[in-house]
Design a protein around this nucleic acid. Structure first.
Length: 508
RNA sequence: GUCCCCAUCGUCCAGUCGGUUAGGACGCUGGCCUUUCAAGCCAGUAACAGGGGUUCAAAUCCCCUUGGGGACGCCA
């Protein structure tokens, strides 16, 4: 009975992709479990057969794997991407537990805590319409509540469709303790004789959830806010069975910019969408962990490991948190800057291919515009210049495009620095061209170029800007870019000179 | 309509036993650096929803109002 080990579960229904809000609930469950040295369990709640989406379980498990979150019990993905189950409290998929629900509903029926209801869908709908019209709370009226045993038996014998409802006790105050919100109290007169078993023989969430949580020895239920109103129903069910209820903790929801619950209507909210947009898992996890929780310190950047060490339900907020993309971008930028160059390269490559700047040909990388083969070491040098400049990987294509163009297309007027003029710019570029031509290919490093060009400026008494701005513009064709010396080094002598020449032509 | 829950800068969070110039971060603005943009550093901007209590003292405790959210399915 008394088990000191904490067991928490996540109970997703396989009805689509994993939403960031789900991911946060999952994350908090995981953090709590690991922090408390407990068990983290996955259970699939597929009792609504009409809403099942093929591949949703695989998608869920992949998303967890991506996030670095692993369940100790329940379904998992094998190396060849098959779904298998592990753990001693299985099966962990509700559709495989129908027998269990059947034996448990019998106990409730025998205890007179539940009853058969033969009301048609039509009657229930009409009833609710009428109640709404009269501005009454919609509720089942208990029509079948007191059917005699013989009436029930004969209806069952004739195969009349039916559901099984919970017999809500009358005039009772239900009080439960929520770890985050404290005591919550509801009167049974405000609750319905809700359905336990549907007419297709499948249990509802309310029933299956309670039976499974009990059988799987779940000690803490951390779930979304939207369940708070159903928790008294659940508490009553535990009571009807004579079971101890787990500890409940209802997590605040994620909101959109308008303060409404974040939903599909707000655009891309699935975890996959964020991955596609070029966010790092570390950034997403860090960000959503902080939405509704903090350690009481001023730390903003956390690894998953640090989170598991510091996480506590004591510091979880009660109110919903707005999902602010600006802050996500900032955090993502922080993580991008921390990446090693190799990792940064690995992350960026798919986006460069996606942006159609680079194509893969016979396992070689080729610049699409020029057809030249490109070495990964070269690509890394270029990427290094942008690592502090992007906030998400989707930006890498645009910002790097100029490196891969055969010929740059820009407005010649832009070659002139704001404090300079056309004549000087042209003169300076010609001086620069002459100098560059004299430098050996092997000496074309940014440091050396900087040294030589600085000397050139001093020698001729030229303003830094009136030389470096045209140079930078000639090489990048962009208002904003990295340092001209860095670009020149990355481009190499030939292309650098070529671009300077082009600029001279454009200015003349 | 009924029930439940929530309320500190624009946003995310500190402020958990009542006493703070109400703190940090994102964003925004300005500065430094500087050839541009980032990055980095520095500075500034901005909040206790309102009203009553309790108290020597309230962002903090209590009540009301207002505002917001959620639930009221044979969905989860």
């Amino acid at each position: 009975m008394k088990s000191s080990i904490i067991r928490v579960r996540i109970a997703p229904s396989p009805t689509g992709f994993v939403h960031v809000g789900n991911l946060r609930t999952i994350l908090y469950n995981y953090l709590f479990a690991i922090h408390e040295k407990g068990k983290f369990i996955i259970r699939i709640e597929d009792t609504d057969q009409s809403r099942l989406v093929p591949g949703a379980i695989e998608n869920l498990l992949q998303s967890l794997q991506w996030a670095g979150i692993e369940g100790e019990e329940g379904p998992y993905l094998t190396k060849d991407n098959k779904v298998k189950e592990r753990g001693e409290f299985g099966p962990y998929t509700q559709s495989a537990r129908l027998d269990i629900y059947n034996t448990h509903i019998k106990t409730l029926l025998d205890k007179n805590k539940a009853y058969y209801c033969f009301c048609t869908k039509q009657r229930i709908d009409d009833l609710r319409d009428e109640q709404r019209k009269q501005k009454l709370p919609p509720k089942y009226d208990g029509f079948c509540r007191n059917l005699s045993k013989t009436e029930v038996q004969s209806l069952l014998n004739s195969g009349t469709p039916h559901v099984i409802r919970f017999k809500m006790p009358e005039n009772k105050q239900v009080i439960f303790e929520d770890l985050i919100r404290g005591q919550i109290s509801v009167k049974t007169k405000d609750m319905d004789d809700y359905v336990l078993i549907k007419s297709d023989g499948f249990p509802t969430y309310h029933f299956a959830n309670i039976v499974d949580d009990h059988l799987m020895k779940i000690t803490h239920v951390l779930r979304g806010d939207e369940w708070i109103a159903s928790t008294p129903k659940h508490a009553l069910l535990y009571e009807a069975f004579g079971w101890h209820a787990p500890v409940f903790a209802h997590l605040p929801v994620l909101l959109n910019k308008n303060g409404k619950k974040l939903s599909k209507r707000d655009g891309d909210v699935s975890v996959q969408d964020f991955i596609d947009k070029g966010y790092l898992k570390e950034a997403i996890i860090n960000f959503i962990a902080l939405l509704g929780w903090n350690a009481g310190t001023e730390q903003e950047i956390y690894t998953l490991n640090e989170l598991t060490k510091q996480f506590s339900l004591d510091n979880v907020h009660k109110s919903g948190a707005v999902f602010d993309v600006d802050k996500l971008d900032w955090i993502n930028g922080m993580y991008i800057r921390k990446l090693s160059l190799d990792d940064f390269y690995e992350q960026c490559l798919p986006y460069l291919i996606e942006a159609k700047l680079i194509i893969e040909k016979n396992k070689k990388l080729v610049i699409k515009d020029t057809g030249e083969e490109i070495k990964s070491s070269y690509l890394k040098n270029i990427l290094a210049l942008e690592q502090t400049r992007i906030k998400k990987f989707t930006e890498v294509g645009e910002v790097l495009e100029f490196f891969f163009k055969k010929e740059l297309d820009y407005d010649p007027k832009k070659l002139v620095w704001k404090k300079s003029n056309k004549t000087d710019s042209l003169k300076n570029l010609k001086l620069l061209e002459k100098l560059l031509n004299e430098i050996n290919e092997s000496d074309f490093s940014s440091e050396n170029l900087k040294k030589l060009i600085t000397a050139l400026l001093q020698e001729n008494n030229i303003d830094t800007g009136s030389m470096l701005w045209p140079m930078r513009y000639a090489l990048s064709g962009r208002d904003n870019s990295p340092d001209p010396f860095e670009i020149a080094q990355a481009l190499g002598k030939e292309k650098t000179v070529e671009r300077i020449n082009l600029a001279i032509t454009k200015l003349m």
